[in-house]
Structures are given as C-alpha cells and as structure tokens.
C-alpha cells in the first residue's frame, strides 16, 4: 500500500473543484487512458486577469486525483504570469509530499496548467516538443531534460517516477542516461575498447577513467582516488579524503572502482589499495 499523506487522502476522498467548466477561458488536456492517467484542467479569469475559478476532471489513481484537486486550489487568485511559475514540486509540496513513484501525477498537473494557459493565449499547440525518447509513453528528450534539471534527478528510475519515460519496454534507458549525464555535465567514455592495449595506452586510459568517471562520482562523498602505479594488470591506488577513513572503502570502493575499470579499460585489471 502507498504511504499517502492525510492531505493526499483528503484531496482524493473530497476533491475540490471537480467538474467540467463550460465557459472556461483556458482548457488543458494531458495524458491518455492507455497511459493510465489523464487530466483536463479548466480555468476562468476575473476582470483583473487573475484566475477566479479552476476545475478539473481526472482519470487516474488517488494521487492523480489529489494532485489535480491541489492544482485547482493553488492557482486560484494567481495571474497567468504567476501561474506559469507553478512547478510540479509546488503541487507535491501542497499535498505534504507524494511517494516518489507517484511524482508523475504532479508533473501531469503542471503540464495541464501550461497547456491551459497556452490555450488561453492562443499560442499554437506545440506539435511535439523535441524528439520522442520513450515510445511507450511518448516522452521527448526536452521533457526529460526539463524534469531532470528542475527536480535534480539522478537516475533512470527517478525519471520514470516523474514522467514515466523508461517504464515500459526499457529500450530507451541508454538514451535517458545520456540526457541525465548531459544535464549533470558528466562525460562518459566511449564503450568500445581497443582490442589490445599496450602498457602506455593502458595507463593513459586508467588515468582518464579515474579523472572523468570514477573520481567525479567519489567526490560526491568528498573523497578521491590517486593512481600510484600500474604493474601489469595490477592497479595500485590510494584512497584520499573521506574515502581513506571510511570503513566502507575497503570493500565497496575497491569493488566499484575495479568493476568500472574492468568495464572501461580491461577486464583483467585488479585494483589494489596501497597502505602507505
């Protein structure tokens, strides 16, 4: 069972502003029955250009209904300029948080709001914003990039939770990873390895891997790895910074570094920590 906050339960069981608005100034439709959730959002403006009233219709789970209900409450009294700045996080926060797997419900709310505003401003319907990455759920690269940036997402799983991309056949996982890497400025080394490395090439590749791939990851935990020597297939290293004193360093780090180096450089490498 999902752990929903009382506020989510309340907005699900007693949704605010449910229903169709016949004289709406803006309407935004997102989602589809195939995807498992869909939302139609309506708003009406007062004479000062502020949102006077907002209603919704939603097909979906409890958190989809609660997110829609919350959205209508949040936008009331806002100008369209202000409403444009409402994020999915605002919706989730209003509800006291959503389970991570359900964050896409809040994203759906934000998307419907944007569409409704664009509809009011008579902005032409954007055909498809970017290239479709996830064919199962029709999610584009731009949508993924936006959600990764705005919510500081780090994994494919996160992306799936927020915009569903990657939740079907999983064929697009590599492409999603590339987008995440691009946003975070991580440069991955090409996967194809030369068949036979001479010692010089090997050392160079190990150094490069440490610098571009392994140390940036370790630095999240405020540590890094120094390359001392390469002796045949033995890679002699020293952990520095917090890594050095961390009790996990022995096993976890060595295992991680070794498997990454085997992947990136040569499958025969053995990592050894030198105690100085």
């Amino acid at each position: 069972m999902w752990e929903y906050t009382d506020k989510v339960k309340d907005h699900f069981l007693n949704p605010r502003n449910a229903g169709v608005m016949d004289d709406a100034d803006g309407v935004g439709e997102v989602g589809s029955i195939a995807c498992g959730d869909a939302l139609t959002f309506y708003f009406k403006l007062d004479e000062n250009g502020k949102i006077k009233d907002a209603t919704f219709q939603t097909f979906g789970c409890a958190s989809a209904i609660a997110s829609s209900s919350a959205l209508t409450e949040i936008v009331k009294g806002l100008t369209l300029e202000e409403a444009k700045n409402v994020t999915n996080d605002d919706i989730a926060e209003y509800l006291g948080g959503l389970p991570k797997e359900k964050m896409h419900c809040s994203v759906m709310g934000r998307e419907a709001l944007e569409k409704a505003i664009a509809c009011h401003l008579n902005e032409p319907e954007k055909e498809v914003d970017g290239q479709i990455v996830c064919e199962c759920f029709g999610v584009t690269d731009n949508e993924i990039e936006r959600v990764v940036t705005e919510n500081k997402l780090e994994t494919i799983e996160d992306v799936t939770s927020y915009v569903k991309a990657g939740g079907g056949c999983e064929k697009c996982h590599d492409s999603i990873q590339e987008i995440i890497d691009k946003v975070h400025g991580i440069e991955r080394l090409p996967r194809k390895l030369p068949l036979k490395l001479n010692t010089l090439q090997k050392i160079k590749l190990i150094e490069e891997s440490l610098e571009k791939e392994i140390n940036p990851t370790l630095k999240k935990d405020a540590g890094y790895l120094e390359l001392l020597d390469v002796d045949g297939n033995r890679v002699l290293v020293k952990f520095r910074g917090t890594c050095a004193s961390c009790s996990k360093s022995d096993f976890t780090l060595k295992h991680y570094v070794e498997s990454r180096l085997r992947e990136l450089v040569s499958p025969d490498l053995v990592v050894e920590e030198v105690q100085l």
Binding site: W2, K9, F12, L13, I33, G36, D37, F59, C61, A62
Partner: peptide, 14 residues
C-alpha cells in the same frame, strides 16, 4: 471501464 483501479481500491478501503 473508464476508472482506475487504485482509486477504486482506496475508496473500497474506506
């Protein structure tokens, strides 16, 4: 048709 299972279950749960 046209409704979602989790929402149904949570209402039944009530």
């Amino acid at each position: 048709e046209y409704v979602e299972g989790e929402a149904i279950l949570l209402m039944m749960n009530e």
